[in-house]
């Protein structure tokens, strides 16, 4: 069967470095809250290090090196290449419903470009959460360095936004992983996130607009 290139190596590296570092950030971010000791997580073999806030936060810092680099790379690389295929378009909300209904077997999917309308909506959601975490996280790094001195209220508000958006990250992560794994129609995309390619048949069938452009 013929294969069509969907994800470049750069895109795959971006995706997986944000995913892996994001999960580490989530785990260590929750560890920055006084929770793990209370719930005996620190007593699970191999998790003793989570008992010390300074160690957990240090791992949070280290993971944020990858996260921040990947997020900034993503914005600048695709922004400068004018690749805006993941930004929402008119009619995406209506069409998202159709896509989701089709995933559970009701009706037919509308013809799609490289990305499904539902993916474009989800991208904005995930993007806003990730961007907020990155910006407030960088501000936290800067205030710890005392390179910026925030007013007491500003420091408080920045902290609260980071913590609350951290919780939102749990929801967007579960939503994103859930939609990919739960619906068989999305599995070719998952494979492509590893290999870079989708079957021609799949592209023709599900991303007819993209397929047509690709053929020209």
């Amino acid at each position: 069967m013929k294969k069509i290139k969907r994800h470049s190596l750069i895109e795959r590296i971006e995706h997986w470095s944000i995913a892996v570092s994001g999960i580490i950030l989530l785990f260590t971010g929750l560890g920055c809250l006084p929770l793990y000791k209370r719930y005996y997580i620190t007593e699970i073999p191999g998790f003793g290090w989570t008992a010390d806030f300074y160690t957990v936060t240090l791992v949070h810092y280290v993971a944020s090196i990858i996260f921040v680099s990947a997020v900034i790379f993503h914005i600048f690389y695709h922004g400068l290449r004018k690749e805006f295929g993941l930004l929402p378009r008119r009619g995406d909300i209506k069409n998202s419903f159709k896509v989701i209904l089709a995933m559970i077997g009701i009706g037919k999917e509308p013809p799609s470009d490289k990305y499904l309308p539902e993916q474009r909506i989800a991208y904005v959601g995930i993007g806003l959460v990730v961007l907020t975490l990155t910006v407030t996280g960088i501000i936290k790094v800067l205030k710890n360095l005392e390179w910026i001195i925030l007013s007491p209220q500003a420091e408080s508000i920045n902290t609260i936004i980071h913590t609350l958006t951290g919780f939102l990250f749990i929801f967007v992560l579960i939503f994103h992983v859930g939609v990919v794994l739960l619906f068989k129609s999305n599995w070719p995309l998952l494979k492509s996130m590893f290999t870079g390619y989708v079957d021609e048949e799949y592209a023709k069938h599900r991303h007819s607009l993209w397929y047509r452009k690709y053929k020209n």
Partner: peptide, 10 residues
């Protein structure tokens, strides 16, 4: 502990 890594992040 944190600030040296913080500089690397930036």
């Amino acid at each position: 502990k944190f600030n040296p890594i913080g500089k690397i992040v930036l």
